[in-house]
Nucleic acid binder design. Sequence first.
DNA 1: CTAGGGTTAG
Length: 656
Amino acid sequence: MKIMSRFKCYSITLRATPRLIAVVNIALQLPRFYSVEVSESRARPKASSSNHQDIVNEFSAYCYQKDLPNAMKALDSMHKHKLWADSVTYAELIKCCIARGAVKQGKQVHHHVFSNGYEPKTFLINTLVNMYVKFNLLDEAQVLFDRMLERNVVSWTTMIAAYSNSEHKYKALQMLIMMLRDGVRPNMYTYSSVLRASEEISTLKQLHCCIIKVGLELDVFVRSALIDVYCKWGEPKAALYIFDEMGTSDIVVWNSIIGGFSQNSDGDEALNLFIRMKRTGFWADQSTLTSVLRGCTGLALLELGRQVHVHVIKFDRDLVLNNALLDMYCKCGSLKDANAIFTRMVVKDVISWSTMVIGFAQNGYSRKAIDLFEAMRATGMKPNHITILGVLFACSHAGLVEDGQYYFESMKMDFGVDPGREHYGCMIDLLGRAGKLEEATKLIHEMKCEPDAVTWRTLLGACRVHCDMDLAEYAAKKVLSLDPRDAGTYTLLSNIYANSQRWDEAAKLRRLMRDRGIKKEPGCSWIEIDKQVHAFLLGDEAHPQINAIHQELSRVIRRLKEEGYVPDTNFVYQDLEGEQMENSLLYHSEKLAIAFGILRLPKGKTVRIRKNLRICGDCHVFAKLLAKMEERSIIIRDPIRYHHFHDGACSCGDYW
DNA sequence: CTAGGGTTAG
C-alpha cells in the first residue's frame, strides 16, 4: 500500500509539472543571456616545412609520454613558430596538467591555443574549462565558458557539474535553464550532476519529473544519483522505491541505497539490503563495508561488526573504512579493539583522532581522551569543532571543571573554532554536574548562539542530579516553550518530583502529559547473541524464552536483595505508560535483556546491551551490584552515554 | 572534454 501511494505521489507531480522554467523556481534570478565577443577565427596554417613538422611531432610525443617539462619546452617552441598541434594532443597535455595540479602550465596551454586570434575547437575549450574546474578555479572556467562561440552538451554539463559540487548550487540550476533555452538537450551526465544541486526537496522532485519526462530515469547513473539525493534529503523510502523499480543495478547503486539507510540511522534496513545484495551475487567493496559498519555501529552489533572487520582487512589502507571500523569498536564499547586499530593505522586524519577521543570520552576513559587530544596536538594535527566537543565531553564526564574551562576558553584562540551550541552544552553539563548550577545558568544567558531545547534540557538534567527543584521547573518550562512535545522533559521533571517525594506533582505531570497526548517512546533494549538480535520491551512477554528469563530475573533479584539491594521505586515512572503494576520496575527492558544475557552467554562473558532511552537509577544500581555478584562485566549503551559495569562500579561514575 | 557510492558530534 505504501508503495502505491508513493507512486501516486509521483504521477500527480508529473501531471502538474508546467514548463521547466517555471518548475525550477529560480527563473527570477536568471542573469542575461550570454553575449559573445570573440575575434574572428581563421584556419590554422599547416606546418609548412619539415622542420616545423618535427617541432609539432616532438611536442606530440612528449604529450603522449606524459612528459610535462619537455612538453612545455616544446610548446614554447611551437608558440614561437606560430605552430599548432591538433586538439586531441592538447587534451592529453591538459590531462597531464590536471593530474599533476600544474596550474601554471595549464594556463600557458590555455594562452597558447588562443594566441594570435585563433579559436580552438569546442572540444578543446571544453577540456580547458574542465581543467579550471578541476583546479577549483570556477571563475576562470566561467569566463572561458562565457566566451565560447558554441557550447555543446559537454560544455554545459561541465559547468553544471562544477556548480553542483560547489557552494553555489543555485548556479547549476540557473545554467540548466539557460542550457534548455539555448536549445541544448541535457543528457544523463547533466541530470546526474544537477540532482546534487537541489536545495529543497521540491526542486529535487521537479528534477525527478523532468528526468521521467525525457525518459532518462532508466540510466543507472541517473538512478544512483536519484537514490543518493533522496537519501540525503532524509527520504530513504522514496529511494528504496526507485531502487526496487530498477531492473539492473551495479555495486554503486547498491552502495547508494545501503549507505542511504545507514546514514539515515536505519542500520536495520541497511543490513537487510546488504544481505539482499550478497544474495544477488555482488561482492562488498570499501564503500559497502563502510556503510555496513556504520549500520553495526548504530545497532551496537559488536559480533557482526567483528565479522565485517575480517573483510576490511582486504582494504587495509582505506582511511575512511578504517575510521568506520574504529568508530564501530568505540560505539560497541570495545575500546581495546578500537585502540588496537587506531595504533595500527598508518595514516590518520582528524576524523580518526576525533573518533578515538570521543570513544574514550563516551566510554568513561576521560583521562585517556584528554591525553590523546594532547598527543594529537603534539603531532601538529589540527582539531576541529568535533574533536573539541570530544575533549569537553571528556572533561564533563570526569568533572574536570578547570580543564574544561581551559579548553573552552582557548578553543577560539588555539584552534580557531568558535564555540557552537554543542560546546556550550558540554560546558553547561560540566558546570551543572559539578553542582555549579548558577554558573551553568549564567553561561546559557551568555551564549553567542540562541539556546535551544537541548541546551535547556542539559540544565534540567543537572538539576536532577542535584535535586534543584526551582531551577528544574524553570529549565523545564524553557524546554517546553521551545519543544512542547518533548516527552523526555515531562518524564525527567516528574522523576525529579518523585525523587523529592512530591508524588502529587509527579502524578499531575503524568496526567498533563496524557491530556496533551504526548507519548513517550516505549523503552526497549537489545542484545546480540549468537548472530541473533533479541529485543525486549517493558514487561515484555513476547520472547519465546520469557519464562526462563523471569525465573532468572527473580533468582538474581532475590540474591541481590540478600546482599542489600533495595529497588528504588522513585523510578517506577520511568518506563510506565498509564497505571501499571507496582513491580513494573523489575521488568524494565534492560533488566530482561541482562537476565537473558546471563542465561545465554558463557560464564564470565561480558553482557552488552543497547537501549533506546536513558537508563534509570534503579537499573543502574541493579547492574552495578549484579556485575559484582556474577563476576562479569555488563555494558549498557544508552542513546548518549556508555555504562561499563564492573565489580560494583560504573564507568560513568554515577553521573549520567 | 561531462555523470553515481563510504568516516567523527547532536
